[in-house]
């Protein structure tokens, strides 16, 4: 499998002086696959990207793009990059920016210009970038990254600051390129945003790879507890707490947790408490809980 991978990272370690920014990370991305790299600011996502681009030298481990060393001619032709913060010259038009990058990549500008249509800013092709909205600039950045049908797309938090509609269109474009065989590696800090839009997720925290797999896999493996919040009847909170255990919150409620397969049994027991219970509220673990679980941040109020 790794032979076919466009990006192959093995046991990669990157240091800045005494600080280890990336610590023994292994990851591979195959053609047509969309992989999201998740992590907080400073988790090592951008550092990993810069190493893939050949800007940083690894302190240990191995990294190849299409079988070549990062920064080599072969690797540079295979990769396209969209940084999180990019400000194109305001005085140039969108078409001029695209023409510029097409020539840098050795692609005929005529073949690149239709990409403005692909990302939905063909109407603004002849307008100065200075007049573009944030979303339009990001679309131009994506068009730039799509020039020459790259084998690997590296997108550093590509959708931050985009409205939901732009975001959906952004992922639609990515899906189309993945279907055409491009491997996509993007970073994000929100798991809920990439739900159903990504094939595989890798969670980075403090430079280490904490988890990797499909979203369904990850949530099942996390085995996160269900939280049941039981509101006591007037003056019965002490009694309720004594019988249920768990944690008291707000002076009137008790929170207990249970595994997914214990849910029904737990509810049955609660029902037996009769008049002591005023109300019951069940919270299933959401994607952000899954993410917090793997990135090492404990969800607030979790018991055990």
């Amino acid at each position: 499998m790794t032979d076919a991978a466009i990006l192959s990272v093995e046991n990669l370690t990157i240091r800045f002086g005494a600080v280890t920014a990336v610590d023994g990370v292994s990851l591979s991305v195959a053609p047509g696959e969309r992989v999201a790299l998740l992590g907080h600011n400073g988790a090592g996502k951008s550092t990993l990207f810069k190493t893939v681009l050949g800007f940083l030298k690894p302190a240990g481990g191995h990294l190849t793009i299409a079988g070549a060393t990062p920064g080599s001619d072969v690797a540079r032709r295979a990769v396209s990059y969209l940084p999180e913060q990019v400000v194109f010259p305001k005085a140039l038009t969108g078409a001029e920016v695209l023409t510029h990058f097409a020539r840098l990549k050795g692609v005929a500008p005529k073949a690149a210009l239709p990409l403005l249509e692909t990302v939905g800013i063909a109407d603004a092709a002849k307008r100065a970038v200075g007049t573009y909205s944030k979303g339009m600039r990001q679309r131009l950045g994506l068009a730039q990254a799509l020039i020459g049908t790259p084998r690997l797309l590296l997108l550093d938090e590509p959708t931050s600051g985009l409205d939901p509609v732009s975001r959906r269109e952004f992922y639609a474009v990515l899906e189309a390129s993945a279907r055409a065989g491009t491997a996509v590696l993007l970073s994000s800090h929100s798991l809920s945003e990439i739900e159903n839009r990504i094939d595989r997720i890798a969670i980075l925290a403090k430079g280490r790879l904490r988890a990797e797999g499909s979203l369904a896999d990850l949530s099942r493996r996390a085995g996160l507890p269900i939280r049941i919040r039981v509101e006591a009847a007037e003056g019965r909170v002490e009694a309720l707490h004594a019988r249920l255990g768990g944690e008291r919150v707000n002076g009137r409620s008790v929170v207990v947790t249970c595994r997914a397969d214990e849910k029904v049994g737990a509810l049955a027991r609660l029902a037996e408490l009769g008049p002591d219970v005023a109300d019951i509220d069940i919270a299933l673990p959401d994607l952000d809980d899954v993410y917090r679980h793997y990135s090492g941040v404990t969800a607030q109020g979790a018991i055990q």
Binding site: D73, R76, Y81, L82, V86, V87, F101
Partner: peptide, 13 residues
């Protein structure tokens, strides 16, 4: 500062 250097140096230039 504008972030374009990373973009430019990611191309074969």
């Amino acid at each position: 500062e504008r972030g374009t250097l990373a973009l430019v140096l990611a191309t074969p230039l």
